[in-house]
């Protein structure tokens, strides 16, 4: 079994340094919507992708919008995928668009049969246009709907079963969601269908106060938190050593700091694969 590598989220302040120094990371992931125009950003990405496998992570397709997919946006995503030929393409279990307004957040979906039908139809449509399987990521949750009868991992499993999509397990999001909504992160991971999971995300979060209670915010602005690492190890044990990404989007640190975070994840990937090999 080939040990899988740890990649990093490619952020604008790091692009030049990555192109010039070619650091030893396994792959790069970009946010699709940042590269749908032309100009210097698009050209810099062309240079970076000459040296690294690429993953395209969409944040704007709004797979959970009840009013339907924005087909013009799907078309732009398809053209980007055709141009960049990424190894992986992923999106989110969330919605952002209603009444033609894009709310710039990965907003929560009540896990109902109605929502599952909407998600399945949109994932199927996106996969048909892209001509490939999507990975769908679990979001960070800050609220629970009164009516949301299907547990989140089961909802994801059903989505994967019905559409053939794969799952992107964001381990930090699992931790944040379970802390905010009173769930058990280990049980959450154990409930996810292992054969459907094709990618893992790691990132930092922060602790805020809401109504006198602590609420964790998935802000991607710090190192991966200590309690998330054992969950990552558990995820590797269940899902195998699969492509893993470290994301850092706010208060972006020097590249060396991000690379050191990725090296920590890579070490665990290597150790886990040793265990598998033994």
């Amino acid at each position: 079994m080939q040990p899988a590598g740890c990649g990093i989220g490619l952020r604008a302040p790091h692009v030049t340094e990555i192109v010039e120094t070619r650091p030893a990371v396994a792959w790069l992931e970009i946010h699709a919507e940042n590269y749908m125009g032309g100009g210097p950003a698009a050209r810099a990405l062309e240079r970076a992708r000459a040296d690294y496998p690429l993953s395209i992570h969409g944040v704007g397709l709004s797979l959970g919008s009840a009013e339907g997919l924005d087909v013009a946006h799907l078309e732009r995503l398809a053209r980007l995928v055709e141009r960049l030929e990424p190894a992986l393409v992923s999106e989110h279990l969330s919605w952002s668009v209603t009444g033609g307004a894009y709310l710039n957040h990965l907003l929560p979906i009540p896990y109902t049969e109605e929502a599952l039908d909407v998600l399945c139809a949109h994932v199927a449509r996106a996969q048909e246009r892209l001509g490939r399987r999507l990975l769908v990521e679990n979001p960070s949750g800050y609220l629970r709907f009164r009516h949301s009868p299907i547990p989140e991992p089961e909802f994801l499993n059903a989505l994967a079963r019905r559409t053939g999509c794969r799952l992107l397990c964001d381990v930090n999001n699992v931790y944040v969601t379970c802390a905010n909504l009173g769930g058990d992160a280990v049980a959450w991971l154990d409930a996810l269908e292992p054969s459907a999971v094709g990618e893992i995300h790691l990132a930092g979060h922060t602790c805020n106060d809401a109504d006198g209670h602590t609420i964790l915010i998935d802000d991607h602005g710090s190192p991966v938190a200590d309690p998330v690492w054992p969950l990552f190890e558990r995820a590797l044990g269940r899902f195998g050593t699969i492509p893993t990404l470290v994301e850092w989007d706010t208060d972006v640190p020097p590249l060396a700091v991000l690379l050191a975070e990725a090296a920590k994840a890579q070490h665990r990937l290597d150790t886990a694969s040793d265990v598998v090999a033994a």
Binding site: E33, N34, M36, G37, V59, G60, L61, S62, D70, A72, H73, R76, S96, V97, G100, A101, Y102, L103, N104
Partner: peptide, 10 residues
């Protein structure tokens, strides 16, 4: 005037 689409450079 919220955004009409997800590309924030637009």
């Amino acid at each position: 005037r919220p955004p009409a689409g997800p590309c924030l450079f637009e």
